[in-house]
Write a protein that binds this DNA or RNA. Structure first.
Lengths: 108, 108
DNA sequence: TTTTACTACCTTGCAATACAAAGTACCTGA
DNA sequence: TCAGGTACTTTGTATTGCAAGGTAGTAAAA
């Protein structure tokens, strides 16, 4: 059985958390986000990220503004809305609780 | 946006790890497993667990033996195969690495 | 001017899997 | 014999990550 698949499953659950964390730290556009995730060894591709960002925007977690680029097409820079801040905090709390119970469950 | 949904997503990734951990500690049958997960606040229902166990069995991660019950139908008691032990260790390692990178990514 | 390369955003179809709900079957005791 | 509880199983649905392909703006080479 391929362990890569299971790793993938675990990763899935935290993509949203990590994306929001990156945006919270710095207003970002998608390529930024992909690069930061990659640096953190959480590989995510465009086909994953764009629909996610759109979903979060449609649910008022994120907002964006267009920013001209010095070289190339304009970019959508995303930031958290106040509602998004609350949502992110809840997500982070859930993550911390999950790690606690899983670590406990897998002890010994 | 409903945070329960996001929690659910995070949980998904660790169900397999937790199920294997429970079985590793004690040869178990499905109701055992559901109860232990529930105690750890990782709620899982039959419709999730049975297909998961079957999948793991088909991939030689788990094996089972029928055990007569004192009151009711016989039970399938599951245990890890040697291959399953290896797989579990890999999964646990992946989990520990994931928590590390996510904690780093969400710091500050 | 036209073409090529690069960057950026977006969409479609597929696959994996958790869950709700319903179904089958066994065992026990009234 | 039948009612209730336990246990295992299956089916249909929804979510969501990914591969692959598409659209479009900018800039530099040909």
């Amino acid at each position: 059985m391929n362990i890569e698949n299971a790793k993938q499953q675990m990763k899935k659950g935290v993509i949203e958390l990590c994306v929001l964390s990156i945006i919270k730290n710095n207003e970002s556009y998608p390529s930024d986000i992909i690069n930061e995730l990659q640096a953190a060894k959480i590989i995510v591709v465009e086909g994953t990220l764009y629909p996610l960002l759109t979903r979060l925007k449609n649910n008022s977690i994120l907002s964006y503004r267009w920013v001209e680029s010095e070289s190339g097409p304009p970019r959508k820079y995303y930031s958290l809305t106040p509602e998004g801040e609350t949502y992110f905090n809840g997500l982070l709390e859930a993550w911390q609780e999950l790690t606690k119970v899983v670590n406990k469950a897998t002890k010994q």
